[in-house]
Amino acid sequence: MKAQSKSQQRAAGAALSAKRGETKTSSLQGASKDMYESMTEAELAEMAGTQRKDLPEEAS
């Protein structure tokens, strides 16, 4: 699944970083925390890897 907005892509990147053990899970908030708990590493990698060029800042 691809990210629908830049903010969603950033949240997925933060969750992916925590999933890989690069950052502490206690630093996650809001959407990134929910993504960390409900998505696999592969799903997060796909969403975080979405090109941001044509994405809106926030999903409507």
Rank of each mutant, 00 (worst) to 15 (best):
A15M: 07
S5E: 03
E46F: 07
K19Q: 06
S60P: 15
D54P: 06
Q29F: 05
R52C: 05
S26V: 02
M35I: 09
A45R: 10
Q9F: 06
A31W: 05
S32D: 06
D34H: 00
A45W: 00
M1Y: 07
A3E: 01
E43H: 05
K53F: 11
T40D: 05
E46A: 01
K19D: 02
R10K: 14
E43C: 06
S5M: 07
E46V: 09
M39D: 08
Q9W: 02
S32Q: 10
A14V: 04
A3H: 02
S5K: 06
M47Y: 08
E41T: 13
K19W: 03
K2T: 15
S17R: 08
E37D: 13
M39N: 12
S27E: 14
R52N: 10
R52Q: 06
A48K: 10
Q51A: 04
A14N: 03
E43M: 01
A3T: 06
M1V: 13
E46C: 08
T40V: 04
S27M: 07
K33A: 14
S7L: 10
A18M: 04
A12G: 08
Q9K: 15
Q9H: 00
A31L: 13
E22R: 07
K24P: 13
E41H: 03
L28G: 08
A59T: 15
R20H: 10
A12D: 05
G49T: 08
D54E: 12
S32A: 14
R10S: 01
Q29R: 07
S60E: 15
A42N: 10
K53L: 11
S5D: 12
G49C: 01
P56N: 12
Q51V: 14
K19Y: 04
K53E: 13
A15H: 01
E37G: 00
S17V: 07
Q29H: 11
A45Y: 00
A48C: 03
S38T: 15
T40Y: 06
T25S: 11
A14M: 10
T25F: 00
R10N: 03
T23F: 02
Q9P: 03
Y36H: 09
T25Q: 13
G13V: 00
K33Q: 11
L28D: 03
S27I: 13
A11Q: 07
E46N: 03
S27K: 11
T25V: 15
M47N: 00
E22C: 03
A42D: 15
S7A: 12
S27T: 14
Q51S: 14
E58V: 14
E46M: 03
A42P: 02
A3C: 09
E57S: 06
D54V: 07
G30Q: 00
S60G: 15
M1R: 13
S26K: 11
G49R: 05
A14D: 01
K33M: 05
G13M: 05
L55S: 04
A15E: 06
T50W: 12
A18P: 10
M35T: 04
R52G: 12
L28I: 06
E22G: 07
D34Y: 06
L16Q: 01
S7E: 14
A48L: 04
K53A: 12
M47G: 02
G13Y: 08
D54M: 09
T50A: 10
S26H: 04
K53M: 11
K53S: 11
S60F: 08
